[in-house]
Amino acid sequence: MNVEEYRDYCIAKKGVTESFPFDEHTLVFKVMGKMFAVCGLERKPTQVNLKCDPDRSVELRAEYDGLIIPGWHMSKLHWNTVLIEENLPHGLILELIDHSYELIVNSLTKKLQAELAAL
């Protein structure tokens, strides 16, 4: 997956916005104001940080050693860095983006979840 495909997939999700809150090279996707995906546009190969269930993170890091690693500049418990332009299955990358999005949506207040559902 290249960075354009990644961006298109993230931005198409319900309630998602994109911004550069840290600098002009770090693209952040948020759902209802909460971050679920981060991409350093200058990093090669392209790497994205995605939220992940801690137990699943351990499994993924073991299975995809060197391609899925503890989140760079993030909580190592809750975030993974995923090298999306390497030899990871395309479907797995989409699944990990979906998983990150859903974790954030499930953590939203009931009010924000209702607002999202109404979009």
Rank of each mutant, 00 (worst) to 15 (best):
M1I: 08
N2K: 10
N2F: 05
N2P: 10
Y6F: 11
R7D: 10
C10S: 06
C10K: 04
I11F: 06
A12V: 02
K14D: 12
G15T: 01
V16C: 09
V16S: 12
T17S: 15
T17Q: 14
E18V: 12
S19V: 09
S19T: 10
F22H: 15
D23S: 09
D23I: 02
E24A: 10
E24Y: 07
H25Y: 11
T26P: 07
V28H: 11
F29Q: 06
V31F: 10
M35R: 03
V38A: 02
C39T: 09
C39L: 14
C39Y: 08
C39K: 02
G40Q: 13
E42K: 05
R43Y: 01
P45L: 06
Q47F: 04
V48M: 04
N49D: 11
C52M: 01
D53L: 03
D53N: 15
D53A: 02
P54W: 00
S57L: 09
V58L: 06
E59A: 03
E59N: 03
L60E: 05
R61M: 15
E63T: 01
Y64M: 08
Y64N: 03
G66Y: 05
L67W: 07
I68Y: 09
I68D: 09
I69L: 06
P70Q: 04
P70F: 00
P70A: 00
P70E: 01
W72K: 02
H73C: 01
S75P: 11
W79K: 09
T81Y: 00
T81G: 05
L83W: 13
L83S: 15
E85K: 04
E85T: 05
E86Q: 13
N87R: 02
L88P: 09
L88H: 08
P89M: 01
G91F: 08
L92D: 10
I93H: 09
I93T: 14
E95I: 01
I97V: 15
D98G: 08
D98Y: 08
H99I: 06
Y101C: 08
Y101K: 03
Y101M: 02
L103N: 02
I104C: 00
V105I: 13
S107K: 12
K110W: 06
K111M: 08
K111Q: 14
A114S: 15
L116R: 07
L116I: 09
A117M: 13
A117F: 03
A118M: 07
L119P: 10
L119N: 14
